[in-house]
Amino acid sequence: MGWERLLYEVRPTHIHHHYHPLCFGSSGGNMYHRKCCFVCSIALLPILFVLYGQVYHEAQNSESETHTVAIPGWSYNTSRDLRRYVLPDNVTAIIPQLDLCSSPELFLLVIVCSAVANFKARAAIRETWASAPSMTNSSSSIKVAFLLGDPDNSTLQELVEEESLQYSDIIQEGFVDSYNNLTLKSVMMLKWVTTNCHSVWYIMKTDDDMFVNINNLVSLLKVRNMSNLLVGALICGARPISDTQNKWYAPHYMYQGTLYPNYLSGTGYIMSRDVVLRLYHAALKTPLFHLEDVYLTGLCAHAAGIRPRHHPAFTYNKRKLDACLYKDKTVITSHRVNSSELRKVWSEMNSPQLDCSGFTATTALAAQKSGAKTGKQRVMSIKRSSKCF
């Protein structure tokens, strides 16, 4: 039966039903013994309540943990050892795209994490910001590539292979391409760069619903050679979400802390090659967490001794669709820009009739704040702190 079972059986309200012969004999005993036993019983009550309370809460916690809603694909008993999925000693790429890093002086590689079926989004990116003057004038030193997983669908796979043959910008790794595998996708990006891009200076990770001003990004990076660089839109004081219906729900069995470490929004961030190596090695020793930006730029960066830093040109918000704003030197990224919006703003940005003479940094900031009010943002859900350290 054991001590734990006995503790569960203690019920303070039952004390008066168990008479002690010293206190309550068959004839009732004398008054002194009765008073003595009454005082002893009262004195024991707090101890019994403490024991009962402790065991009750342990039982409640155990029951709560058992009934926690699991993340699809990452249940309580699923191994979160990244080495089991990334296989660092094996080739895992379905389409390795080795020619991407053939240039001995690759300055910047932008890797767009894209869902397999998002053919239109990739096409729009190729036709817009991936064809910026910095790209066409320095084709050997700046590249844009798309990272995909395995669709487990032969028709989709055939289309991806045709796309790769046509554009030579598809990297495909052999993991199931799903939302809850975004962490695997990002770590596979680190693995691919570590294995295949020995001469690249900087790597940007972004998504396929993003606008990226390549010209401004290159100007920022060419100010000086930088190492130990991990920069983007910094999120501080974020709390794990316990609402199981929320897109960013985090079960207790995956993360036990009350706050996340400071991290960069996964919508777009830049890192130097030395940081890629350090994050990759840290990831191989850090239990997987399904929210890739928290995991990679928060947990793994902390483990590797890397401090993520904020730059106002990066945002997780959708900026106002203003061509002058998107051309302004204060802007590198904008989020939630769909294919038609991307083509529209890009066409306006490159129009000879565009007049931005009256556009200033002040109006750019006002437009950015206006854009930040649209849509439900993740950082609003997690009650982002405005104070970053």
Rank of each mutant, 00 (worst) to 15 (best):
G2P: 09
W3L: 15
H18E: 09
H20A: 13
H20C: 06
P21A: 12
G25M: 07
G28F: 03
Y32P: 09
R34H: 07
F38C: 13
S41I: 05
A43D: 08
I47T: 11
Y52D: 06
E58Q: 10
T66Q: 11
L87Y: 02
P88D: 03
P104H: 02
L106K: 00
F107S: 11
V112A: 00
C113E: 07
F119K: 09
R122N: 08
A123D: 15
A130F: 00
S131N: 14
S131K: 05
A132S: 15
P133K: 05
N137W: 05
S141L: 05
F146P: 01
P151Y: 01
P151W: 00
S154L: 08
E162N: 10
E163V: 14
L165R: 15
L182F: 00
K185N: 01
W192E: 02
T195H: 07
N196K: 12
C197E: 01
C197W: 00
H198S: 02
S199H: 04
W201Q: 15
T206I: 15
D208L: 02
D209P: 01
V218Y: 12
L221M: 12
S227Q: 06
P240Q: 01
T244V: 11
A250N: 05
G257E: 03
N262R: 05
Y269F: 15
T297E: 07
H310E: 11
P312I: 06
K320C: 15
D322L: 08
Y326M: 15
K327P: 10
R336P: 08
V337G: 07
S340V: 14
K344E: 15
V345K: 07
W346L: 11
T362M: 03
T374A: 14
V379C: 07
I382H: 06
S385T: 13
C388Q: 03
